[in-house]
Amino acid sequence: MNRDFSKKYLSEENFSKLRKTTRSGVQETLMMERIEKESVRKSFPVKYYIVLTSASLLFLVLSIPFILDFMGMSKENEATTQLYAPPELAIIVGDETIHPILGTYSWTVENNDGTSTDNTQDSEPPPVLLKNQEPLIVSSTNELTFVFEKPPSSYEIREWENKFNEVLATYNDIDLENVSGVKFFDIIATWEQGTASYAFSLEFENESGSRTPTVERVYSESWDGETVIVEEYEESLNYNIINEITDGKDVETMLTLLKKTEWIEGISADNEPPDYRFTWNSYVHGVWVWKMKETDRSTENVVSNRLSIIIEDQYNHTTLSEEDSSILYEIVTGEKLE
C-alpha cells in the first residue's frame, strides 16, 4: 500500500490540504501509516479518519461552548412553551362555533429565576356568567367538538341547575338525545400548569329541528310545590319580596294563563329591569307593566295595562291580553291592576 491508495479516496486538492495541515513530516508519516493499516484491515475510506487529526480535535473543543449554549437555548425554548394563562377553548357544532366564558381557574407559571407565580381567579357559576349570552342551538343529529388551544391531560363536563346554581350531574360527554330546552354547562380541564373551567349553554331543538316551545320545555312538568316568591323592583337592581304564593289554585290559574299565551321564541329581551319577578319550578319570570294604546270601533285611543313577560335564560317573550294581565297581576301582587 502506498500514497496512491489514499488518492483513490481523497481528491488531489484535499490530499494537498491534508498534507499542509499536518504540523510536521513525522505527523504525516504516522498518519499515513495508520491510514494504510486501518484501511487494509477494515477497508474504510480515508475520509473517515480525518476527524482524528489534531485540528479536528481542536474544532471539537472550540465547539463545546456553542453546544452548551444550544442546550441552554433548548431548555429556554422548552420553558417558553408554557402558557401564561389557561388555553382558549372553542366548541364547534357544524358550521357554528362558540367560545365559552373562562370561569374559575388556578394557573402556575415558571419564572426564569427558578421561582413560580400562581394565578387564580374565582367566578360566578355558569348560569350567572351566561346571563347575557345566547345559547348555541343543537339537535340530536349534531356532534360537539371541543378544540383546546393546548390539549388538556383530562377534562369533565358538569351540568348546572339555574335556580340555585348547583351542579346537577357530571359527564364525560354530552348526550344530545332526549333533551330539550336551555341547559348550562361548564368544562373543568386539567393541564400540568393547573386547572380551568369554561362555561357555555346549549339550547336543544326538538325532533322537527325547531326550538322546543316554551310550553313544552318550561310548563310540561307539574308544580314542584315550592312557594312562588314574588319580588318587586325598588332601585339599583334591588328587589324586595312582596308576596309568597302557596295556594295550589292560584298557582294552577297562573300556569294556565302562561300556557295559553303566545310565546315568541328565540329572542333576547334587552329591557329595563322587570317591575316584578317570580320563580316557578326554578324558572325565573320577569314581568313588566305597560300602558298600551289600542284601537277599537268606538275610539282610536284606548289605553290598557298589559303584562309583558320573559323567562330568564330561555330567550322568549310574551304579552298577555288585557283580561289575562289583570288576573295574573292580582295573583302575583295581591292587588288590582289599574
Rank of each mutant, 00 (worst) to 15 (best):
D275Y: 13
I91E: 09
E330Y: 00
N316D: 10
V40A: 12
T227W: 04
G334N: 00
I64T: 14
N142E: 10
L57Y: 06
V147M: 06
R41A: 04
I310E: 13
E149F: 13
D313Y: 08
D4N: 12
M32F: 11
E300L: 06
V61K: 03
N206L: 03
V228K: 10
T104D: 04
G25P: 02
S321A: 00
I331F: 03
P87S: 12
V109G: 05
V287Y: 04
K336N: 02
S11D: 15
E323I: 01
A55G: 02
H285Y: 15
I264S: 12
V215Q: 13
K150P: 06
L129P: 00
V46W: 11
N316P: 01
G286Q: 03
E28L: 05
D122Y: 08
A199P: 05
R306K: 10
E252V: 04
I264C: 01
T53C: 00
P65F: 07
L102F: 10
V332S: 03
R19A: 10
Y239T: 08
S220R: 08
V218L: 07
W288I: 06
D186Q: 09
E143Q: 10
K183Y: 15
G194M: 02
Y219T: 05
R277F: 15
E330F: 01
T29E: 07
V289S: 00
V230P: 07
G248D: 14
S325K: 00
N243F: 08
T22H: 08
N2A: 11
I241T: 15
V40K: 12
F70C: 02
S140L: 06
Q121C: 04
Y315V: 07
N172T: 08
P125Y: 13
T29N: 12
P87K: 14
I92N: 07
L328G: 03
Y84V: 03
G72T: 09
E322Y: 07
E231K: 13
I35F: 15
T145Q: 10
T22S: 09
E272R: 14
I229P: 00
V51K: 08
T115W: 11
S43R: 12
D296A: 06
K7Y: 04
P127M: 07
W191P: 09
T115Q: 05
T170W: 15
S220I: 05
L237K: 05
R217W: 11
L328K: 01
A79Y: 08
T115M: 05
E33V: 06
Q314N: 09
I91Y: 12
P125G: 02
T212G: 07
Y9L: 09
